[in-house]
Amino acid sequence: MKITGVRSHVLSCDMPETLGYSQQYYSKRTAHLVEVSTDEGLTGWGECFGPGAVATANAGIVEGVIAPMIMGMDPRDRDVCWHRVYNLLRDHGQKGMPIQALSGVDIALWDITGQAAGLSISRLIGGRHRDRVGVYGYGMMLRPEPVGELAERFADEAAAIRDTGFRATKMKVGLGVRDDIRLAEAVRRGVGDGFDVMVDANHAYDVNDALEVGRALDDLGAYWFEEPVAPEDREGYATLRRTLRTRIAGGEAEYTRWGWRDLLASGGLSIAQPEVCALGGISEYLRVLALCHAHHVPVVNHVWGSAIAVATNMQLLAAMPPLPGGLHPREPWLEFDTTENWFRDEMLTEALDIQGQVAANNGTVALPDRPGLGVVPDPDFLNRHRIDR
């Protein structure tokens, strides 16, 4: 079998309202899919992390740089393909956009390999530790409105996520210390005690402000504090982990086994959040997962993007060993964006229906066991939302 084509599909649509996080507001949703075709008729799908203009730039890397490197190779030789691309790009980008681009290609190669073998990706990895997984719903995105109105909206939205059946919820912060504490208090009020709440700062703070917010989160019983400081501030992460009771989570902005080796050695993470569509794809994710578990750091995958990203993570969650094990280990969660997302909910020929499953099955979803990723995008949907580059 040989690779005969590598194509990017950059999709865009208007959102029903402007949403944001600590770094920006946005009113369009973007997704970047990678389609790899073969001479035997099999097609694999992957996804590259990165919105907006980043997606467009990554598409150029996929088609103009990576595709010529792997054309004619056997897609089942995915680790050979991965190292060929990485070694040739080492001088031009060991992190960031070249690795995001490689991620989507690698996921597509795994999809082809699973289809060729008649096995799901989770079985290719080594087997399924679980057939269902709990889901946490993130919402409570920032909006350009007064903090008092936003706090009331956050309380109501958090309660709605809980009442829909999700196992836990996650909110955004980034307005400043006092306003962020007010938002966190509103979310705790909305869900009540005994329901896990996570807080995502998207590296909004320096370590002093993060400590102030973190102490408030300790009092509120937050489960984790995500990306509290810049990903480069390894010492800041370690300080927060030593000082706060709330778990410190992060890692979505880290790349490859080498970056993760140094991140884990710094001792700043209570929970690791690798992003498979950014760090180097499934091939590299498995090496990162092994590093995390070797450091006894539990993993809750970062999930952002279209149905391809969600399906990829569902396969990885099925195959993730429990840490540390036992009769009643804390199982990993699937992260789920509760805001409107056509690229997740409307894009496939057969929808994943995460929300419906959560509501009907005590906050859990079934993990697909069909060959490869087990999902196929609807070509008519792609044609409607593809943007010209």
Rank of each mutant, 00 (worst) to 15 (best):
R188A: 05
R167C: 10
Y205S: 02
V191Q: 07
L211K: 11
G190M: 07
A186E: 10
V187M: 08
D193T: 12
L220K: 13
A184F: 13
R215G: 00
K172C: 05
D196K: 08
E226P: 07
G174N: 13
M171W: 04
D179S: 13
D209L: 04
A230Q: 15
Y223W: 15
E185S: 09
V229Y: 10
D233W: 10
L175G: 01
V213N: 02
D180A: 10
A222E: 04
V199L: 06
L220H: 12
A168W: 09
R178A: 15
D209V: 00
Y223I: 05
N208V: 11
E227A: 13
E226V: 06
G221H: 08
V213A: 02
V199M: 04
N202V: 14
A222D: 05
R182C: 03
G190R: 04
D200I: 10
V197M: 15
N208G: 00
R182H: 13
A168E: 08
A184D: 10
F225Y: 15
D219I: 00
V229W: 12
R188P: 00
E185Q: 15
F166A: 00
F195A: 01
D218P: 04
L183F: 08
V191Y: 11
V207Y: 05
L175T: 01
D219K: 14
V197Y: 03
Y205A: 05
D206W: 06
R167W: 07
R178H: 13
K170M: 10
G174L: 14
E185F: 01
D233I: 08
M198H: 03
F225A: 06
V199D: 01
I181W: 04
V213C: 04
A222T: 04
W224E: 03
L220C: 11
D200W: 08
D233R: 10
G194Q: 05
L211E: 12
L175I: 06
F195S: 00
D218A: 03
D180Q: 11
R178Y: 02
D193E: 15
T169D: 02
E227W: 09
D209A: 15
V187G: 07
E212S: 11
P228M: 14
G174D: 11
A210D: 06
D179K: 14
R167V: 12
E227L: 10
D180M: 12
G174W: 14
M198W: 07
D179H: 11
V177G: 05
L175W: 14
R167G: 00
D179F: 04
K170A: 03
F166Q: 00
A186T: 11
D219C: 00
F225C: 09
F225V: 12
D206L: 07
F166M: 03
A204F: 07
P228N: 12
K172F: 09
A204P: 04
V213S: 03
V173Q: 12
A204R: 15
L175S: 01
K172S: 04
H203E: 14
V199I: 10
D206C: 06
D196T: 09
V199N: 01
L211M: 14
D196S: 10
P228Y: 14
W224T: 02
E212I: 11
A222P: 03
R215D: 01
D193M: 06
